[in-house]
Design a protein around this nucleic acid. Structure first.
Lengths: 282, 282
DNA sequence: TAAATCATGAAATAAAATTTCATTTTTTCT
DNA sequence: AGAAAAAATGAAATTTTATTTCATGATTTA
């Protein structure tokens, strides 16, 4: 509930003097949050009690409380909405828009995620005898990334972005294996087939995809990162980023579940990489 | 700059009593914005002047001003602080923390990006006779993703996550080629060598890496997504997501620069993918 | 047009924040 | 270790800011 909006809405419920206050505030809200009640009264050419009454009419406790609300409204100056890139945007503009859209998607994805599903997924992953990540196109990157992460945990993990390899791998799966299918659309035919093959061969299939899609129907758990993406300019953008964040969540859940001893193992991998780097001089 | 983040950062610059104040605030910032200085002092079991001094140390004018800043930080729903995952977190908790950290990183990356550099990079990319993306480990995923995107533009683009292929490709580069090197640390020896080889062979080298690193020194343009990541639990997380967002920005800049006719081409690629999918029933 | 209601600001009061300064604690140097 | 210096802290005084009260003037209604 934005207080600036509220002022605009209730503008005609206000008395003449109070409206003066409203106008001054709307004209330059950022100035107001640094003004005392006296300063504001003076600027609106009315008395201090009027300002106070104005504040109360907007359901705030008083002037300081009103300023707090106002400050909050201003902070949302750049709400993380999906602002669309425009033909004539400058570099600065489209950069901001893309970053903001991405953040908006993450926010949305987080809200839609069910932590029970995450918990169950982590359960399954920690007990898996083998973990496979399958994706195609943009989702292949996510699968690739997942392999990179889980590989460090020293568990059997594979990733394929090749249809045939995926099929072969799926056919060879067995009870205790976990297959994670990644697809933004959830409608890619060959992936749905692979999911089905894996299921038929007793693997547990987890989908990182949209709910209610053909792929989702083949999965025991669906982790959906529904990100209202109109595949802007025909490229998947935010969806894969939300998927990656989800991979981070799963990987984190995995390490937490495995306990502290296990994490020493990660340190080993990390230390091992060090020799391939130039030293940092502090 | 988020004041909550600032408090966290400057925690060890504070005196003992001031830290008590910080702790009370961090524990429940939303309570504090409705407290008077006296109430806060009492809760932290210190005196009012100490609270005041605390506020000033954080570069605010005083307590009321501090509350204003705090209110603004809270307005973004959830403060995007880099909250660290804790051993005993529930699935819900670590999910939230990871998503929030990711969003915080994106916010930070956006702020640190220079739109002039972006502009120059897009210039170079649109004029390139060939574009190469090189990365290793977690950054390989970013390079992979970049290839996936630029491939759709119907421009000569390659991606390698293999040291030897990278070297060979770099040696064969020539004037007019653009090589994009991706590395979070900027210190991976073999990547620095590849960058140098490409430079020696007259290619333009753009780095998506941290400033002031050995890799950065080999680049004509450095697009830095410095994301204060302590490689939590020894896995790169937020950094690669910020890098991906940057790839989105470059790809978007590219399509915008190429104009509307060019975008029809993207539609063709997209339409061509359609037959591989199950139809969506509306 | 008189009575009633409402709006307004001056002044008084109350609350909150800030400054000053003396005391205590911590650090630094011998 | 012990003295001197520096820094931190809170009690009390002061200042600033906000709120309440109330008398007066404006506006509406019958």
């Amino acid at each position: 509930m934005n207080i600036l909006e509220k002022i605009t809405n209730e503008l005609d419920m206000l008395s003449k003097s109070e409206r003066k206050v409203a106008e001054v505030i709307l004209a330059s809200p950022s100035t107001v949050i640094h003004s005392s009640i006296a300063a504001l009264a003076k600027q609106a050419k009315i008395s201090e009690p009027t300002v106070n009454r104005f504040c109360r009419r907007l359901d705030t406790k008083g002037y300081p409380d009103f300023k707090l609300h106002l400050a909050q409204s201003l902070a949302n100056g750049t709400p993380y909405v999906n602002r669309h890139v425009d033909e004539n945007d400058t570099a600065e503009e489209y950069t901001d828009k893309i970053f903001e859209s991405t953040m908006a998607s993450l926010e949305l994805a987080r809200k839609n995620l069910d932590s029970n599903d995450i918990n169950r997924s982590v359960d399954l992953l920690t007990q898996a005898s083998k973990i496979s990540f399958f994706g195609l196109g943009a989702s292949a990157i996510v699968a690739h990334d997942a392999q990179n992460k889980f590989f460090r945990f020293n568990v059997p993990v594979v990733y394929f972005d090749d249809i045939l390899m995926q099929r072969m791998s799926a056919i060879n799966s067995r009870q205790g294996d976990v297959v994670i299918m990644i697809s933004h659309t959830g409608r890619t035919k060959s992936l749905v087939e692979v999911a089905n093959l894996a299921k038929e061969n007793d693997a547990t299939v987890i989908g990182i995809t949209a709910k209610g899609t053909p792929l989702a129907k083949e999965c025991s758990i669906v982790l959906s990162v529904d990100v209202c993406e109109d595949t802007d300019l025909y490229m998947p953008m935010s969806s894969r980023i939300a998927q990656l964040a989800l991979i981070d969540v799963l990987a984190t859940g995995f390490t937490l579940r495995r306990g502290s001893k296990f994490r020493d193992n990660l340190k080993k991998v990390k230390d091992c990489l060090r020799s391939s780097r130039f030293e940092k001089k502090d």
